[in-house]
Design a protein around this nucleic acid. Structure first.
Length: 378
DNA sequence: AACGCAGCCAACCGCGAGGTG
DNA sequence: ACACCTCGCGGTTGGCTGCGT
């Protein structure tokens, strides 16, 4: 990450962060809210952390969700001293946490350039593409998605992609699943990504700036943090993981927002975007021209590469039902049928009939069959 | 209202690689 | 060469949520 950038930003804001966060009306907990209802466990000499515990001056180490106070301590320390040497950092900062925990909290949540929000079509494309090349190399994949953490990508893959594979009765790593991803989902995602780019290029006010609410609720992050909400899609789709903030009596959507210091040069002034301003809350991935070119090249390549038939069929297949005309067909056979239209373009998928896979409950707006035009094929 | 369930994600765990003395 | 330490990675778990019954 760009530490210098972060340092500048933190230096400018830190006092205010601390003042705001420590003020009586401010939240007692951060985005890891369970701490409010149930304070993090204090672990003395737990197995794996024995060495770290021994190394720590303190005999006890905290585990579980981070509190705002801990976040502030960590941010404060890193702003002043930089990151690295996590064990000594944890001690020096006065955190009763393992260095490992501090590092994780910083990298996955507090780091200024962490980008949060729903995974865009473009990002999904990239994840699918890169995973097809590198497998579960989450960190490597994350390097190609600015602001996304390996943890986030990993979670996305496990919860979203694998879910679809399960419903297809496919192994997520099977050639069959890859095949349908490449020939059905990715072309549609590519279209959506292009549409998203077109939308962004459409004439509009360059930066949506929404005044911060006049009244700051307990759930609001310190005012000096920029405040990006998730896109409406995600707000609707994401029904879980609000975690304990609600239990702590805090606003529902707090968890969706990130304490966020604007990297220099992205916007002139700190902006506070209303979390519910669906159209503007989602922070677009700042793609450079080079990025766009890269993606275009990537997907041109991918499209070509993906046209190569694979020796698949690892025993997985569509759900078969009594009226399933494809019952007994392998994925190879099914996909051979699917791609045997007048041309080999993915749009030929619209010419064929696929069985009803029972995807109705999978409509998450990102991979929905509606979006993928599959339901009309059933 | 109460309960169970599944989805989601932050945090933890175990391990290996690399650096240092 | 060895031990120790730090760091980073991928896998897993725990806890919170909304939804359905």
């Amino acid at each position: 990450m760009d530490m210098d950038m972060a340092m500048v930003s933190f230096d400018e804001d830190l006092d205010q962060v601390l003042a705001d966060a420590m003020s009586p009306g401010s939240s007692a907990t951060s985005s890891a809210p369970a701490a409010a209802a149930a304070p993090p466990a204090v672990v003395a000499g737990s197995s794996e952390d024995d060495e770290e515990a021994a190394a720590a001056a303190s005999a006890d180490l905290r585990r579980g969700p981070w509190t705002v106070d801990e976040d502030i301590l960590l941010v404060n320390y890193i702003a002043a001293h930089g990151e690295g040497r996590w064990n000594s950092l944890a001690r020096s900062a006065g955190l009763k946490r393992t260095g490992k925990s501090c590092r994780l909290r910083w990298l996955n949540y507090l780091r200024p350039d962490v980008r949060r929000g729903n995974i865009t079509a473009e990002e999904q494309l990239l994840i699918l593409d890169l995973h097809s090349r590198w497998g579960n190399r989450w960190s490597k994949i994350a390097q190609h998605l600015p602001g996304r953490t390996d943890n986030e990508i990993k979670n996305y893959w496990r919860t979203r992609v694998q879910k679809h594979a399960r419903h297809l009765r496919c192994d997520v790593n099977s050639a069959s699943f890859r095949h349908i991803v490449r020939h059905v989902w990715m072309p549609r995602l590519r279209e959506r990504a292009q549409a998203d780019r077109d939308d962004q290029l459409a004439p509009q006010s360059p930066v949506a700036v929404v005044q911060a609410p006049a009244t700051t609720t307990a759930s609001a992050p310190p005012a000096c943090y920029n405040y990006y909400g998730y896109g409406s899609q995600h707000l609707v789709q994401h029904q879980g993981a609000h975690h304990g903030l609600q239990a702590a009596g805090e606003a529902h959507h707090h968890h969706h927002h990130q304490y966020y210091n604007e990297p220099a040069g992205q916007t002139a002034a700190a902006t506070a975007l209303s979390p519910d301003d669906a159209s503007s809350a989602l922070r677009p991935l700042s793609l450079t021209t080079d990025d766009a070119s890269h993606y275009a090249a990537t997907y041109a390549y991918t499209s070509t590469a993906m046209a190569t038939p694979t020796n698949d069929d690892q025993g997985c297949g569509p759900t078969t039902t009594d009226d399933d005309v494809f019952a007994g067909m392998t994925w190879s056979e099914l996909l051979a049928t699917a791609t045997s239209g007048p041309d080999d373009d993915s749009t030929s998928m619209s010419m064929i009939s696929l069985p009803n896979f029972g995807f109705g409950d999978l409509d998450d707006g990102l991979w929905s069959l509606d979006d993928l035009c599959l339901q009309q094929l059933c």
